[in-house]
Design a protein around this nucleic acid. Structure first.
Lengths: 109, 109
DNA sequence: CTGATATTTCGATAGAAATGGAAATGAGGA
DNA sequence: TCCTCATTTCCATTTCTATCGAAATATCAG
């Protein structure tokens, strides 16, 4: 994770619909969710949703996979963990007095 | 942490200079850093820096305290932890199969 | 091939955010 | 009080972003 990638990821998340979308996928887990289904759940037009999915994808926060006629989206947990780690990097001077390395945040890792 | 607050916080971090600024303060720890000193470190004009500090402050990610003629800024670790927790909330369906509650990310908490 | 379904691309409009110099504000020292 | 230092506010300009209907693309079933 570098500054540029982190800014891109944070910008992708810094929008009402995209944040809801990402959390929806985080909570959906391995199973993921089809694009159309997320549009239903969030109540926004398909074209808007597609735009937001593209942003999250470009930021590396989600992955897509075609399944029959649908495209299934999944959260990329590794990317999320990397972003969180970047924010907390060397917290309080990085002398280890603050957070033990073992407590580094990680989901599904 | 709610969606609105999270979007505000993420938007505050989704900018090259503000992200660098926030990480600088995270790494500075309890001691914090004066506004002018952060401008020096980041090499940006005071007026720009002040704008960015205000954004982070409005988002609740940093705190300020006057000390003599300077204003010392500090990262708000609790806010950061709250934001991270919000992103990971109910990860993978929230059945606990993914992240044990004890591994919830936390810095200085 | 034809029709149906799922998703993305296009395009125009409207709104929000970053920038930095100059001036204003606020606090402390002599 | 007067001066200096630290920080913020103001302002105009420029650039980036969200929105969503309509049309285009892609996959599959029959």
């Amino acid at each position: 994770m570098n500054a540029q990638a982190a800014v891109t990821a944070l910008a992708a998340l810094a929008q009402e619909h995209r944040l809801a979308l990402f959390r929806l996928l985080v909570q959906a887990g391995d199973e993921g969710m089809a694009a159309g289904r997320t549009a239903e759940r969030l109540g926004i037009p398909n074209s808007s949703l597609s735009f937001h999915l593209a942003q999250l994808n470009r930021a590396g926060l989600i992955r897509q996979e075609r399944q029959h006629r649908s495209i299934i989206y999944r959260a990329d947990y590794e990317a999320m963990n990397g972003l969180v780690g970047y924010l907390m990097e060397n917290c309080c001077g990085g002398d280890g007095s603050c957070v033990p390395a073992s407590a580094t945040p990680a989901c599904c890792g």
